[in-house]
């Protein structure tokens, strides 16, 4: 058993998520076509591509959020730390505690700032008492780079914050459950440039502890924050590689057309 555990840890040091032959169908619509990708630990991986190319759909496969859509069907293998997340034995609820998610539109619960962050740890039983919970909340809010702004009004409703603050609160909420992977679905598309800069700075900070996967429409953002970039087009993963290489020396003509603005 020890040997097996040892080999697994060796394997996970580089690759956190490994997807092989992933197909996604919405009813009859083939949304993701045979995608293979390896996402590394402690890096920011950006998914770029035109609208409707399947990048958000693929992202939602990684924490099985697609399960909530009745007509959605996922085929192929997705492994996190060598474990098949679509295995029958996997409870998606447990998976989602390990793979946190931040959504396009800031969606804090209509509760206090404190309760927003404390909710995840509470339902997963991460805190034994109030003092521990307070500690977790503070730590999460600090990681979300919003602690200084809200520490005096933790009882204020989370929905009363500005858009950028709300999104950082949602990031704090996502990290409060101590996930290993953080998925972000266009986290800055509803934010102004200043709030975007704050969130991007935060992503760079979070990279030290988590494997980050972001979907973005902004190529500049992908270039700024990510180390790896994947380009999706019409449900295909066209190109995947180092961010610098994708933006300066794309191998595929479609990638080149997209980043130079000819398709999209």
């Amino acid at each position: 058993m020890d040997d097996l555990g040892f080999t697994e840890t060796i394997l996970t040091q580089d690759t956190k998520i490994s997807a092989r032959g992933v197909q996604v169908y919405y009813g009859d619509n083939h949304a993701i076509k045979d995608v293979d990708v390896d996402i590394e630990d402690k890096t920011v991986t950006a998914f770029i591509g035109p609208s409707g190319c399947g990048k958000s759909t693929f992202l939602r496969c990684l924490n099985r959020m697609n399960d909530t859509i009745d007509i959605c069907r996922v085929e192929g293998d997705i492994h996190i730390d060598g474990e098949d997340i679509y295995d029958r034995a996997v409870d998606p609820v447990q998976l989602r505690a390990k793979v946190g998610m931040v959504f396009q539109k800031p969606n804090p619960f209509p509760k206090s700032i404190y309760d927003n962050v404390a909710y995840g740890p509470k339902i997963h039983g991460l805190a034994k008492n109030k003092a521990e919970l307070d500690e977790i909340v503070e730590k999460a809010l600090r990681r979300g780079a919003i602690w200084d702004e809200v520490k005096d009004r933790l009882d204020a409703p989370g929905t009363g914050l500005s858009g950028g603050q709300q999104q950082r609160l949602c990031i704090a909420r996502a990290v409060a459950t101590e996930p290993e992977v953080l998925l972000m679905d266009e986290p800055c598309s509803a934010l102004d440039p200043i709030a975007t800069a704050q969130v991007e700075e935060l992503m760079d900070e979070l990279r030290k502890n988590y494997s980050l996967v972001i979907v973005t429409h902004s190529m500049q953002q992908a270039a700024r924050v990510s180390q790896k970039t994947a380009f999706f087009h019409l449900g295909n993963l066209v190109e995947f590689g180092e961010t610098g290489q994708i933006f300066t020396n794309p191998q595929d003509p479609r990638t080149e057309s997209y980043i130079t603005g000819r398709i999209g």
Binding site: M65, V93, Q94, R96, M101, F103, F109, Y119, A174, T177
Partner: peptide, 12 residues
């Protein structure tokens, strides 16, 4: 989005 938010932090 509220359901997504709750499911996203691992609520059943």
């Amino acid at each position: 989005s509220i359901r997504d938010a709750a499911l996203g932090v691992g609520a059943s």
